[in-house]
Design a binder for these strands. Structure first.
Length: 147
DNA sequence: CGTTTGACTACGC
DNA sequence: CGCGTAGCCAAAC
């Protein structure tokens, strides 16, 4: 188990965020974590690795009514063991919402990637802006070095 | 009391 | 672009 200093509080935050994900959109463990400030005593770089796992634990313990199926891993795939009942259920729920999976079992974040809650909501909850799930603009052309 | 085992990611090849 | 691996923490064996 990967637990944050205060699991109860952390889980509440995670669930509050997950409840904001609209049907037909998908988020990732890392993106959820990026909205929650690192607890005191946890270095930023360390949190980057641990936060996502903590979110995973929060999902494992998700209470009823939380759209847990909309949280998948950074590769765009379902993290539950392939072929498990949970994985099948998650995929079915997402497909019912109109989310498509390719032959490798991955979703297309360009289409269904969540951009996060409105800035106001984040502010009201003292949360941070999420990382984007869409690919970076990626320097289209190889820019010749000026130096 | 040492090992195993997770609803993760970034990074190197 | 895909696959393997290191880093990481606590609970259950």
């Amino acid at each position: 188990m990967y637990n944050p200093p205060n699991p109860a509080l952390f889980n509440q935050l995670v669930w509050a965020i997950v409840r904001q994900i609209p049907a037909g959109k998908a988020s990732t463990y890392g993106q959820i974590a990026s909205m929650i400030p690192p607890p005191e005593g946890v270095a930023a770089d360390q949190y980057k690795r641990l936060g996502a796992r903590w979110v995973g634990s929060a999902m494992h313990a998700a209470e009823q009514g939380i759209p847990w199926q909309r949280v998948i891993n950074s590769q765009g795939k379902i993290s539950l063991p392939k072929g498990s009942a949970g994985a099948d259920e998650q995929r079915a729920l997402l497909e019912m919402e109109g989310i498509a999976f390719d032959k490798d079992g991955k979703v297309n974040f360009e289409q269904v990637g969540w951009e996060g809650p409105p800035e106001e909501w984040l502010c009201a909850h003292r949360l941070l802006s999420p990382i984007s799930l869409k690919k970076r603009p990626k320097a289209t052309r190889s820019q010749p070095s000026l130096f």
